[in-house]
């Protein structure tokens, strides 16, 4: 009885599926799916190596500091970094005094309450503050940016397929639209063609426009646009995953211990089973 019911249910489901399949196949032949323009012109992130890649990866602190300067002087005009506090910058090699100065001179103050009147006020940031938000809310952000919302960058290298390579490709990927791009996919007013962005037209103004836009201290590589894009991408890897070095170091210790323990476990297993094999 069970098998009879199962057989009927099976025939029923297979029948419905076969009908779906035939319908799909007929549509597929009659009207083959066409690659969308976005699909055709979209490009995968470029290959770019970072010191933090791979199981031995570690941060290049000089590069992170340069990347921080690029963020502060360029990106921070529109993008917040709300999960990072100023004192976290100690991890990338800034001294306490430098951090106090960075916080105090930040381009924005921190919302606070006037201690006399109790009214909303602002005060200079201190090391314990998170990097202050750019806009009061989403409406303000969209109003200031042609209805586009500049995302918070704290997790951006984990929140996009391709990670830091995507960020780097996007920053360096602005170009003139190809001649064969259909008119309806050409960037409208306030949009810029960038093949690394999913729908090809990005509302972000090209941020890195000239070599030397950010003043790098002596002893650093020249601040070319490519170098600045690399540096800020590396900085954003750190912002998204500040515990990466700790993770890699602990990982090796744990794995070496486990390999040793597993080898012992295997020997114990062989020893115990010796008389039974």
């Amino acid at each position: 009885m069970v098998r009879l019911i199962a057989f009927l249910v099976g025939i029923g489901l297979v029948g419905v599926l076969a009908f779906s399949l035939i319908t799909g196949a007929v549509n597929f032949i009659a009207d083959p799916p066409q690659a969308t323009v976005e699909h055709e012109f979209h490009e995968e992130p470029r290959d770019v190596a970072f010191a933090s890649d791979g199981p031995f990866g570690h941060f290049d602190r000089q590069q992170l500091q340069r990347g921080f300067h690029v963020y502060r002087d360029v990106c921070a005009a529109c993008h917040s970094l709300g999960l990072v506090t100023f004192r976290d910058l100690e991890q990338i090699g800034f001294s306490e005094a430098e951090i106090d100065a960075i916080a105090a001179q930040w381009i924005r103050e921190v919302p606070s309450v006037n201690p006399e009147t109790g009214e909303a006020d602002t005060r200079p940031a201190i090391a314990a503050d998170r990097i202050p938000a750019v806009y009061a809310n989403e409406v303000a952000a969209r109003a200031a940016n042609n209805n586009a919302l500049p995302p918070d960058l704290s997790l951006i290298t984990k929140a996009r397929e391709g990670g830091a390579a995507y960020v780097y490709s996007l920053l360096t990927g602005y170009q003139n639209p190809p001649a064969e791009l259909p008119a309806e996919n050409r960037p409208g007013p306030g949009l810029y063609y960038n093949p690394y962005f999913a729908n090809l037209n990005l509302a972000m103004t090209p941020p890195l426009t000239a070599d030397g836009q950010v003043a790098y201290a002596a002893g650093n590589p020249p601040a070319t646009r490519d170098q600045m894009a690399r540096d800020v991408s590396a900085f954003l890897i750190w912002a998204a995953e500040p515990k990466l070095e700790e993770r890699h170091a602990l990982g090796w210790a744990v794995i070496i211990f486990l390999i040793f323990a597993t080898a012992l476990a295997w020997l114990a297993y062989q020893n115990i089973w010796r008389d039974r094999h």
Binding site: A6, F7, G10, L17
Partner: peptide
């Protein structure tokens, strides 16, 4: 999916 159901039920 056809095979999955056919496998168990038929």
């Amino acid at each position: 999916t056809i095979y999955y159901f056919a496998h168990f039920l038929i």
